[in-house]
Write a protein that binds this DNA or RNA. Structure first.
Lengths: 114, 114
DNA sequence: AAACATACATAGAACTTCAATGTATTGCAA
DNA sequence: TTGCAATACATTGAAGTTCTATGTATGTTT
C-alpha cells in the first residue's frame, strides 16, 4: 500500500472517511478514488483496508449504508454519515489539532491552525 | 489515560519518543514526565504504554539502552537514539507533514509549513 | 513503619491491520 | 466472441498492537 506507517494510516482513516462522507454520501470504490485524488496518490486504500473500516464505522453507528443502482445497472453500497459520526469528526479534528501542536512544538515547526 | 484515541497515540508515540531522545538521552520515567510537560498534560503515557514501546524500539534497532546509577543510588535504564532511529524520525516527520497537509486540505484548514 | 514517589517489567484479553483471495458485473480491446 | 481490465463488495486469518492490571524494587517523606 502507501508508504505511510500502518499506525498513521490507522489513525487517520476514520477521520478522512468521515470528512469525505460529510460533504456527500459515497460508496466504497469512490471513496478510495477520492482519497487517492485528494492526496495526489500519497494515500491509497486497498479493498482490504476500506471495507472492514466502513463496516466497523457502520457497526459503531457513525455511518449508515443503503444500496443504489447506478444508471448502467451497477449496484453500489452507499454510505452517509449520521449525527454520531458528525460528533466524532468534530472531536477527531480537535484532537488532531492538539496533537499537531504538540508535535510541532517538539519538532520546532509552525503548526497549522485556523 | 489521555483522551486521544489509541490510534492517534499509537501513531505518534514513536516519533515523539524519538524526538525527545534526539535532544538528549533519557530514561522511561523521565520520558513520561517530558511528554506530559510538553503536552501540558494532554498526553500521559502509562507504564504499560511506555516500556513496551521502548522495548520494541530497541528491538528494532532505533535506540540503545544502558544502565546508570544516579547520585542518590537509584539505577536507571537510559536510552539513546542511534542512526536508524534518526533516519526513521526524519521519515516520520516528512510523513506527518504530508498527512497533515492532506488532512488540512480535507478540513479546509490552511496548513502552514516551514 | 507506612505511605508515596520513583522506576522498570510483563501477561494477556481485546483489538487492529491488510494481503490474499473470493465472487460478481460492465466496458472495451483484440 | 473472448479475454482482460476496471469496477464493486466481501471476508479470512496470521501477525501485530494496545494498555490495564499486576508485579517487584528502592529511595524519600510523613
Amino acid at each position: 500500500m502507501a508508504k505511510f506507517s500502518k499506525e498513521l494510516v490507522g489513525a487517520t482513516s476514520i477521520p478522512i472517511i468521515l470528512s469525505i462522507l460529510s460533504t456527500k454520501e459515497s460508496y466504497g470504490y469512490e471513496i478510495i478514488q477520492s482519497v487517492k485524488k485528494i492526496s495526489n496518490g500519497q494515500i491509497e486504500y486497498g479493498d482490504g483496508t476500506i471495507y472492514p473500516v466502513l463496516h466497523k464505522m457502520e457497526k459503531k453507528g457513525l455511518i449508515e449504508s443503503f444500496w443504489k443502482v447506478s444508471e448502467n445497472g451497477r449496484k453500489r453500497k452507499y454510505y452517509k454519515v449520521v449525527e454520531p459520526g458528525i460528533e466524532l469528526l468534530k472531536l477527531e479534528k480537535e484532537n488532531w489539532l492538539i496533537v499537531n501542536q504538540i508535535i510541532s512544538k517538539l519538532w520546532k515547526i509552525e503548526p497549522n491552525l485556523t
